[in-house]
């Protein structure tokens, strides 16, 4: 086995001990992610894990791969640069609900519509964990947080519907309480060509007392067997469906046809013509 590829998930773990609270949902992703790396036989030397700022954004520290922990909200911008500079790399971006959909919310639509060749995994705990419990863009209206002592006045965004609308070509939801299913979804997302998104419901027992493992366990259900992953309006409807009181995990949507950003620019490069320095200067010779 080449160096950098490991048989077992655990072997992908770096020597840095996770900084998360006991019971944090992010551990579920960490385990599932490492197992998926082993399943895929991923080489850490060719892998770059990019994140923003938040509890969840510490994720790359705990894996043996190349990693970049940048600034709040900009993980996708940095990840896109990494991938475009070296398309051979496996690039996965990580972050929290605040990192991705509040401060970084302006970038997500564009990575979706560019169909940027990478995977984005958001650990959604409906709270700002690292900064100790403020309202996040997925906080349930009315929930009391440290900045909203009388209840959150904002309506939440729906991350799945958001990325579906803007053109992500693989969209799934996973639950930290179900790492086995998550492991498979991660593998599917990373194998997908184009922009793949996984919303991981990842409870924060420390600062979000309302959305707990137990409450989520009640609500989570696999997407129905007959869910059509090629039907975008159907996927959006499922993502928005709150009437049943259910949350669905699994693959909402998958589009294997739309060319990726790298596909498109590779095609265009063929039309640019060969490089000839003197020919370029000729344009400027009087």
């Amino acid at each position: 086995m080449a160096t950098g590829i490991y048989a077992k998930g655990k072997e992908y773990k770096s020597e840095v001990p996770p900084t998360w609270c006991a019971g944090c949902g992010d551990y579920g992703l960490l385990n599932a992610f490492m197992n998926s790396l082993a399943d895929q036989q991923i080489n850490v030397n060719n892998t770059a894990l990019i994140s923003g700022i938040g509890c969840s954004s510490r994720f790359p520290f705990f894996i043996k791969a190349y990693g970049f922990h940048g600034v709040h909200g900009r993980a996708l911008t940095i990840a896109s640069g990494v991938k475009l500079a070296n398309p051979e790399l496996e690039v996965v971006a990580f972050g929290g609900d605040g990192d991705g959909f509040a401060i970084g919310g302006g970038h997500v639509p564009h990575m979706c519509r560019k169909n940027m060749d990478m995977t984005y995994i958001v650990m959604d705990n409906s709270i700002y964990g690292l900064t100790k419990g403020q309202m996040s863009p997925t906080t349930t209206p009315g929930m009391k947080t440290s900045t909203t002592p009388y209840g959150a006045p904002d309506n939440p965004i729906n991350p799945l519907a958001f990325v579906l609308t803007y053109g992500a070509t693989f969209v799934a939801q996973a639950f930290s309480g179900n790492p086995k299913q998550m492991r498979g979804l991660i593998t599917q997302a990373m194998k997908h060509r184009g922009f793949s998104y996984i919303n991981v419901i990842s409870p924060c027992p420390t600062f979000n007392k309302q959305d707990t493992f137990d409450s989520y366990k009640e609500m989570f259900e696999d997407l129905p067997e007959d869910h059509d992953t090629s039907d975008k309006p159907g996927a959006i409807a499922k993502a928005l469906d709150r009437t049943s009181g259910k949350l669905y995990s699994g693959v909402y949507y998958e589009d294997k046809e739309t060319p990726t950003f790298l596909d498109r620019i590779a095609e265009q490069r063929k039309t640019a013509g060969a490089f000839d320095f003197q020919k370029i200067l000729d344009i400027y010779r009087p």
Binding site: R74, T77, I78, G81, V82, K83, A85, A272, G273
Partner: peptide, 27 residues
């Protein structure tokens, strides 16, 4: 682009400089 380079128009300058940092990280 003729010389194999990549040029990308991003959604704002924050994204431009983010992509530049990422590309630099990648070599």
């Amino acid at each position: 682009v003729k010389k194999g380079g990549t040029v990308v128009q991003t959604e704002d300058e924050i994204s431009s400089i983010g992509a530049v940092v990422g590309a630099s990280f990648a070599g």
